[in-house]
Write a protein that binds this DNA or RNA. Structure first.
Lengths: 110, 110
DNA sequence: GGAGTGTATGTCAGTTCAGACATACATGCA
DNA sequence: TGCATGTATGTCTGAACTGACATACACTCC
């Protein structure tokens, strides 16, 4: 059961929102999710720092405002791949991204 | 196969192997690819450090040896998402990953 | 209240990715 | 040479992701 279930869980992302669920994740899942949250938060910071709206960023990316919103919300339909590309497109360096990753995870509102 | 591969590379906006082509990438693309290469190289290092074969890692992941080989080769069909998950599953911390990202990119054999 | 601006959420169709399998290549050793 | 072990490459199918669009929510100003 484990392997299948685990894989399915990882595939599907995670059950959303609630700290209880969050804490039931295995260590590697937790690290992955923290990474994703850190990138998402970083993207928002970066955008705000540039003084851009989500719509403006979307135009720059050739994407849509809704997708940018989902990125910043670390939505399940958004991959870290997209988050990384987006940060880089906004001018972040690999080192900037590394900094985001090594930061302590912020507790997030449930 | 050449043609297919070529097409795939172009679609991804990426030509592997040759420094000249490499340099034609835009900065953000370059940073993204360097990131991917760094994660792939890191994964290999990590695995070798653990003294595991690709097959063993594949079993641990519930994946296949070929997929692990492609991960370490930074194959086009492998996302940074998968690379990150894999590193975490092998026990890397976010900080370890961050370290990989901030390292200078290795010049790779053309 | 209503209009304007910025952000969030739900869904869909087309594309990309994941694991699986076959198979090729490389190296070591009897 | 033949065989074992480890790694690389090609390709298929089902699952996940992406951008697009519609629409809802939140806030401000008039």
């Amino acid at each position: 059961m484990r392997k299948d279930k685990r894989r399915r869980l990882e595939r599907a992302g995670w059950t959303v929102g609630d700290a209880g669920d969050f804490l039931r994740l295995s260590d590697d899942e937790r690290r992955f999710i923290e990474t994703k949250l850190a990138l998402a938060a970083g993207l928002r910071q970066w955008r705000e720092h540039l003084g851009l709206t989500q719509t403006q960023v979307a135009e720059r990316f050739g994407s849509s405002q809704s997708r940018v919103a989902k990125m910043e919300a670390a939505d399940q339909t958004v991959s870290t791949d997209l988050l990384l590309r987006s940060l880089f497109r906004l001018g972040a360096s690999r080192r900037d991204v590394a900094r985001l990753l090594s930061q302590r995870p912020r507790t997030r509102a449930a």
